[in-house]
């Protein structure tokens, strides 16, 4: 018989840690999609023979700053002292992935907005505003300035595309590193979480883009890419589990949360079955039969991407080092 009695009964900590909730899970999901959109948009502009994109594809880059703002709103809502959020930008803490993330998020805005602007202008050219009317002189002044900025951006298009590619990757990876560097939470404590979050984010982004009226060529490209990404994600998930299973006692009991514990059913049904296996088969069948990828598999991938964040956020906090963890 072992009986534990603790006089500590703190909100958010007892009986098991739950400092982060739906806000963080949603932010991680949206951040992953933003990362993926930036990587895909960057790659599209780095491609050697850029064929004109569909209107939807040309406008999709705007979702990067939009969804990021939504995600950052959730992050802000999670803060216990939200009006101290500016403190993130008073310092750079090299050992804190969250500090890296704060500065990456800041850099993502100008880079993603600039590329979205160029992408939109390439698809929808022509004059920027009305040429006459009561505000014509102001418009003229404004459009001249904007045209100047646009010219500069077009002249540095490869650099801008590369910056989107790199910042998108950094955004996708840092969220995983943030959780992965916490030795106190064995379920998260894996260097594979960074690449896992990036690949899962790119897969979610491909699925998110497939929801819009893209051209057939774009749909086939995204469907094929997503197929590869799902396979890579499955490989990373497998390696993550092998890593935990072959590490110490704390890691093994953390893994037990998803292999024979309270998170097992949700993990295997939502993340693995709904989010990976079913869309993998569906996309493979679609491509095999020469069909254009539809939206059903994409919706499943998005559900799986959200479930992965949700379950990792909650299960990770339930994992720990305390000897009493084994008793619970």
């Amino acid at each position: 018989m072992t009986e534990l009695e603790s006089g500590r009964n703190h909100l958010l900590i007892d009986p098991s840690l739950h400092v982060w909730g739906w806000q963080i899970a949603l932010y991680l999901f949206l951040g992953g999609i933003v990362a993926g959109i930036m990587v895909f948009t960057g790659l599209r502009f780095l491609g050697r023979t850029p064929r004109p994109p569909s209107l939807a594809m040309a406008l999709i880059p705007w979702f990067a700053p939009l969804l990021l703002s939504l995600g950052m709103l959730f992050l802000w809502l999670d803060l216990e002292h939200p009006f101290n959020a500016w403190r993130f930008y008073m310092v750079f803490q090299v050992s804190s992935p969250m500090s890296w993330g704060a500065w990456i998020l800041l850099a993502v805005y100008p880079s993603s907005v600039a590329l979205a602007w160029v992408s939109t202008r390439e698809a929808l050219g022509g004059p920027l505003g009305p040429r006459d009317g009561p505000w014509s002189s102001l418009w003229l002044w404004l459009t001249r300035r904007l045209a100047g900025v646009e010219g500069w951006l077009r002249a540095h298009l490869r650099g801008l595309a590369l910056s989107n590619l790199l910042l998108g990757s950094a955004l996708g990876i840092y969220t995983g590193i943030l959780l992965g560097t916490m030795a106190a939470r064995p379920l998260w404590n894996s260097p594979l979480l960074g690449p896992l979050f990036l690949v899962s984010g790119m897969s979610s982004a491909a699925a998110f883009m497939l929801l819009y009226p893209l051209s057939e060529r774009e749909r086939v490209f995204l469907g094929r890419t997503d197929l590869t990404l799902i396979l890579v994600e499955m490989g990373l998930l497998f390696l993550w589990m092998v890593g935990l299973a072959s590490a110490g006692a704390a890691s093994q009991s953390a893994l037990a949360l998803v292999t024979g514990g309270p998170f097992t059913a949700s993990f295997w049904s939502f993340v693995v079955a709904v989010g990976l296996v079913v869309p993998l088969v569906a996309e493979w069948v679609e491509l095999r039969h020469g069909q254009v990828p539809g939206r059903s598999a994409a919706v499943l991938v998005l559900i799986g991407g959200f479930a992965l964040r949700w379950i990792l956020v909650f299960a990770g906090q339930a994992s720990g080092w305390s000897s009493e963890m084994a008793l619970m």
């Binding site: 958010l12 900590i13 840690l17 002292h81 916490m182 106190a184």
Partner: peptide, 11 residues
Amino acid sequence: KCSGCKACIAA
């Protein structure tokens, strides 16, 4: 200086 991000509690 604390923003209440709770990363330290998790760590």
